[in-house]
Design a binder for these strands. Structure first.
Length: 559
RNA sequence: AACUCCAUGGUGUAACGGUAGCACAACAGAUUUUGGUUCUGUUUGUCAAGGUUCGAAUCCUUGUGGAGUUGCCA
């Protein structure tokens, strides 16, 4: 019972629906075409979710094709990381792994085809001369003095280019289109250049390499891609994409459709800037948990599902928008709230002594693993005379709205007892060193006492003797300006100096020892945290994935 | 003042000539053994001006604003 026009399909899916309805295509083939010259970031995730998502929905297929036409920049290291990232996101190209370099032979033939049809020529001009001859946005270009070489001479020269007789930059092959075309891409674009550099797959077989424009559409056609989805900046290339399909004996007719790339506030997304952050050591690497790379996001503890949901939420349009990072974080919290097991952890410990609790006694309390999933049951948490609580959960001079522990005030220790603070112990300098408290045995398990007494807060705690010591890394946005891309001066001047805070003395509930690397859990009342790759059994390291929504912090800020 | 594209609350995104809806954010309240979650409510919008039409966010015209493009990068 499918609605002929189910609500809120994006414009690309509407085009596909129509192509299927009119019989233009009887199946749908998309492709994700990264250049293996860097790590994937969340912007790529949008494209991956679109292309692989469409293939899944339409029961078609999505090819993974590496656009490896520039040997100077590319490396197999990146091929591997890109594959890993796509799989982590939950997508699969099946048998359809391709490389543009697989088509070098065919593309060469097609270049010869153009020459033979008088539609391409070898140009001896330098790149400076070519630039001068191209004209500009207001003025038409001028034709190259080599534009009207004979067919034979062009063929001969092109073959000698291939044979390695010329140095880099000495000659190029150009399509012969129109030097006065209003679209600069159509002013006799270069389609082959000489590059004497080893290619990561073809080695030194070639010393001439096709340009992106001469590769992409033809590769799509060779793979019978029906819809070639790319970002807006290729809009001006579409006429050229189509010109090659029109002028070459290609086996199919793909259609290029452009959509808007993903932008997030408070972050940079360009490969160049990301690379700079890594190379100048502003971050620890491509997988630094503050990076918008897929590997960074993964290490940070964002679930793949939340990235997929986020991409669904932001939609596909041609409007150049900037999304709120809070929307991403909300997707992350939504998934984690449902899935993450709860534990207690104290980030900044303050010692508590329960003076009326027997010295050697230890009790184990049952604590719910996840209130969203009661079927998961409970875990045991040890309680004893000496405990740690969060420094932020105690105030000596508490304002009225502060519900947590304060002198002569009572709170619930989660799943344990009502605890009253009786005495604040300080050192000579006046710093609070510990709190002396008493517990109410009638509130075992955290139950309300028979006298009907209520408390306004429940706080988390960890038994001092049983606690695991750990390092916890708190992350914040890398930039403190909304749009670090369009800022006067360098984007680096707007980095957030507090984007990483390391807490070396956190104390964890002992159950946390069993959490494997990469898994994200909730530290109750604090946020979601995952075990970092740096973590060892002896020295656990947790990353804060994202904090919980904190309405107390807001109240505090308002004063 | 070239060519191409874009314009809906604070941020995104729907509405395909017929009630401007949803999410995030913000604010208020209820629930709560997480100041979490959940629930309820509130605030805020069709870039402008004309035209077509019974009726326009939607179609037409003009204007305004923004983006991309002058690589032998992709």
């Amino acid at each position: 019972m499918s609605n002929p026009r189910s609500p809120s399909k994006d414009f690309i899916r509407e085009i596909i629906d129509e192509d299927l309805a009119t019989g233009k295509h009887d199946g749908t083939v998309t492709r994700f075409p990264p250049e293996p010259n860097g790590y994937l970031h969340i912007g790529h995730a949008k494209s991956i979710c679109l292309n692989f998502g469409i293939a899944r929905e339409y029961e078609g297929r999505c090819h993974l094709r590496f656009d490896d036409t520039n040997p100077a920049k590319e490396d197999t290291e990146y091929v591997d990381s890109i594959k890993e990232d796509i799989q982590w996101l939950g997508f699969d190209w099946g048998d359809h792994l391709y490389f543009a370099s697989d088509y070098f032979e065919k593309l060469f033939e097609w270049a010869v085809h153009l020459i033979e049809n008088g539609k391409a020529y070898v140009d001896d001009q330098s790149s400076e001369e070519m630039r001068a001859g191209r004209g500009d946005l207001q003025n038409p270009g001028t034709e190259s003095p080599f534009r009207d070489r004979s067919l034979q001479e062009n063929l001969d020269l092109f073959n000698r280019m291939k044979a390695g007789e010329f140095k880099d930059g000495e000659k190029v092959l150009r399509a012969k289109i129109d030097m006065a075309h209003p679209n600069l891409n159509m002013r006799d674009p270069v389609i082959y250049r000489i590059v004497h550099t080893e290619h990561h797959r073809t080695g030194d077989t070639w010393c001439i390499y096709p340009m992106y424009d001469f590769t992409h559409g033809q590769s799509d056609a060779l793979e019978y891609v029906t819809h070639s989805l790319c970002t807006l900046e290729f809009e001006n290339h579409r006429p050229l994409y189509e010109w090659f399909l029109d002028n070459l004996p290609v086996p199919s007719r793909p259609r290029q459709i452009e959509f808007s790339r993903l932008n997030l506030n408070y972050t940079v997304m360009s490969k160049r800037k990301l690379l700079q952050l890594v190379e100048e050591k502003h971050v620890s690497g491509w997988d630094d948990p503050r990076m918008p790379t897929i590997s960074g996001i993964r290490r940070r503890g964002y679930p793949a599902e939340s990235i997929r949901n986020f991409c669904k939420t932001i939609g596909i349009t041609k409007f150049k928008s900037t999304n709120d990072i809070s929307l991403l974080e909300s997707s992350v919290r939504e998934v984690l709230n449902a899935d993450a097991p709860r534990f207690m952890a104290v980030l900044k410990p303050l010692k508590i002594v329960i003076t009326n609790y027997p010295e050697d006694q230890v009790e184990e309390f049952d604590a719910v693993i996840n209130p969203e999933k009661p079927e998961l049951g409970t875990r045991k948490v040890p309680f004893s005379r000496e405990l740690y609580i969060e420094q932020d959960d105690f105030m000596e001079d508490a304002p009225k709205k502060f519900f947590r522990l304060a002198p002569d005030k009572e709170v619930r220790f989660r799943c344990a007892y009502f605890i009253r603070c009786n005495e604040v112990i300080k050192d000579e300098a006046g710093n609070i060193t510990e709190l002396h408290c008493t517990y109410d045995p009638e509130t075992r398990g955290g139950e309300n006492p028979p006298d009907g007494r209520k408390v306004k807060a429940t706080i988390h705690w960890v038994s001092a003797a049983h606690a695991l010591k750990a390092e916890v890394r708190l992350y914040d946005r890398l930039f403190n300006t909304e749009n670090p891309d369009s800022v006067e001066g360098s984007f680096l001047d707007h980095m957030n100096p507090d984007s990483l805070e390391i807490l070396a003395d956190a104390r964890l509930e002992p159950n946390l020892a069993a959490v494997p690397v990469g898994e994200t859990v909730q530290f109750e009342r604090l946020g979601y945290f995952c075990v970092d790759t740096d973590s060892t059994q002896e020295a656990p390291v947790f990353n804060r994935t994202v904090g919980l929504r904190d309405s107390w912090a807001k109240t505090q800020q308002k004063g």
